[in-house]
Design a binder for these strands. Sequence first.
DNA 1: GTTATTGCAAACAATTTGCACCCAC
DNA 2: GTGGGTGCAAATTGTTTGCAATAAC
Lengths: 142, 142
Amino acid sequence: MAVSSNDLLPKSRQTPRLTRHQQTVLEILHQFSQPASAQNLYATLRQYQLIGLATVYRSLEVLKLQGLVQSRIDANGEALYSLVEQDQHYLTCLKCGQSTPLDTCPVENLEAQLRQSAAFTIYYHSLEFFGLCQPCTLGQKA
Amino acid sequence: MAVSSNDLLPKSRQTPRLTRHQQTVLEILHQFSQPASAQNLYATLRQYQLIGLATVYRSLEVLKLQGLVQSRIDANGEALYSLVEQDQHYLTCLKCGQSTPLDTCPVENLEAQLRQSAAFTIYYHSLEFFGLCQPCTLGQKA
DNA sequence: GTTATTGCAAACAATTTGCACCCAC
DNA sequence: GTGGGTGCAAATTGTTTGCAATAAC
């Protein structure tokens, strides 16, 4: 575990006081290069320390409220969590459920614009295109 | 029920053969101006005909696969369904969970661009900004 | 007739909650 | 000591599935 969780805290917003568990959750998320489910995080965290599944959920909830962690729901209805620094732009197939990350972010301008407005404090955004991937369009998959 | 469900079918894609229930689901969704939960749709449909909750879910699943209906998960983890013609751009508060629709769509260009590529058939997209609304930023709510 | 669709009830699984215990300050 | 954080197990709840009855063609 090479990364100190302090490195993961944004300087801009008021530094929250995080518990040990919350910090470890951040660290694990940082080590994962992909969004992970709560159950997945739980299994991983268990290797390092005694922790309950409920605590994982509670920690993720706190971290989301801090704007440090974001989540999206995958094709199985399971929530996938990731650090807000990571991409949230996907092409998602309605049939096979596979999500392919997009490298372009076409909304940065609007986001900057919205940030100006005092009416809402933006932490992050999510953009997803839904449809059929090529194999599913051709009827090759379930 | 003034709207025939045939009016709700896009001419572009191959016309799917919809069951009576699936058609009624489309009609109800059309009457609702806002996204509705499956349970909500179920209650409404019950006023018109005998139908099971499972059938509502199964119908929505079929309609989603046709690209006629889209869903998103609200703050309570409940799926909200709507016709694809309707907006899918929100400002969502992480604290109180309220979603405010945006009127601008900054991604139409990219979507048109992506449609060119044969690698993915786009039905619709969803764009969501997450953060705190003004009352929650000021700590006035929960 | 054959096949897909349906309603109902039971099953499922992810998430949340109650509560006693423990730790930090 | 006091308040929040925690683990565990039970409860909750949206959604899915098994299956016999039914409708569609």
